[in-house]
Nucleic acid binder design. Structure first.
Lengths: 223, 223
DNA sequence: CATGTGCACATTGTACACAATATGCAAACG
DNA sequence: CGTTTGCATATTGTGTACAATGTGCACATG
């Protein structure tokens, strides 16, 4: 069916496409992945699909129960409480390993951070800017493995659980944290920035939990 | 061929067995994994084997080039330089997240550390004790995801590269570090212990590089 | 009416067959 | 003599068939 011109294998492509779909919320947390349907949907047979599923499962994006199917991993408060501190430690390390941040990087960080708070941007976009900010922060640490690891964990933790509860991170405190961190970096106080960053992620656990509780309450009201 | 009584799937079992083999050095870094041979060796068909391989690849234990096969991941100086700091940050986090270490855990740590230096133990065993020490250190941090993550990275970094260059970590400085860390933990100074631990791993990069250079020199002499 | 049992169906797991690609060698060519 | 081209062979990638297991419902039974 496919003419196989690519250098990448079907399973690899499927893995990446599925990953994107999960991150975009097309397959939300808790959704069951029916092999036959998904295979048909992507136009491949079950064999490469299953190989991709195995990889994603190993990434922590899927959970698997033998003979009962695969589920997109939940991202509940418990998961956040486990992952956010890990991200804090890893990004802090990346900041410490980075040298002096060049002016253009610093202004990019400021710029992106400013856009997070700009009025009129959709919550989804705001969330995207937040992601971009963190990505820029660690991009030049010189440890590709670390970057990849951070990326994977952010992928797990960044998805919205609880049935498309939108509204994410208006985060008045969050952008203030970001600004403070950039300021430290401008002064070449990377260690201080790292410490702030770690606290930022740890605070995030409570922030997300609070925000979700609010969203759940609103959800109930509108029913 | 198999009566399939187990609750775990063949692919999962194969993944774990292969993982053990790789960690034990039965498949040393750089070894090519021929699918047909390995499948025959483990008594399964290629399908579940390939699924397992995909998982291990995602773990970073294997590298893959389309149509050219899979290789057990190298663990050269570059890899060590990337992974050791990550392990340092993660284990430091685990120590900080742990509460007060109970006396029995502290004496276990002391005990295991003592065995590392005991004369007459094989290098392999010594290495095993070192692993056990670090495992005990993080076991009660209360973050299973973190423990799993540490375990996986230790799996990658703990393998001996460069053709079974044995002799590992006599580490006179290493056990001294361990002792100092336990002392800090006894005083409930977890943050100090965490900082020491991070330095311990960072120093490890140079130690391993040095040790390997020596081993390589000896290798050449005996040829 | 509640509960348990067994069968039909759906879905996942495994094996195998075939297709696509890489590799090594031998012969042709300059 | 070195280089290149083309084929034979080995290995990996994908599709498909079949086996094993879980699920839900109808029906019997107390």
């Amino acid at each position: 069916m496919n003419t196989q011109v690519s250098r990448r294998t079907t399973a690899q492509q499927v893995l990446e496409r599925l990953r994107e779909h999960i991150l975009d919320g097309d397959y939300p947390p808790g959704a069951k992945l029916d092999e036959t349907s998904v295979a048909k949907e992507l136009g491949v047979s079950r064999t490469p699909l299953r190989e991709a599923l195995f990889g994603l499962e190993r990434d922590g994006l899927l959970t698997h129960e033998p003979f009962r199917g695969r589920i997109v991993a939940r991202n509940d408060d418990a998961a956040v409480a486990e992952i956010f501190p890990i991200l804090g430690a890893l990004e802090a390390l990346a900041v410490r390993m980075s040298g002096a941040y060049p002016p253009e990087t610093l202004s990019k960080l400021d710029d992106v951070n400013r856009r997070i708070t700009e009025p009129g941007v959709s919550p989804g976009l705001r969330h995207g800017f937040d992601q971009a900010w963190h990505q820029t922060l660690v991009a030049d640490c010189g440890n590709p493995r670390l970057i990849e690891l951070i990326e994977r964990h952010r992928a797990i933790a960044a998805r919205h659980d609880g049935g498309e509860a939108r509204g994410m991170a208006d985060a008045p405190g969050s952008t203030a944290d970001h600004a403070e961190i950039v300021e430290a970096l401008r002064d070449r106080r990377n260690d201080d920035a790292a410490a702030l960053l770690e606290r930022h992620w740890n605070d995030g656990v409570a922030v997300v939990a609070e925000w979700r509780a609010q969203a759940a309450k609103q959800e109930k009201k509108s029913t």
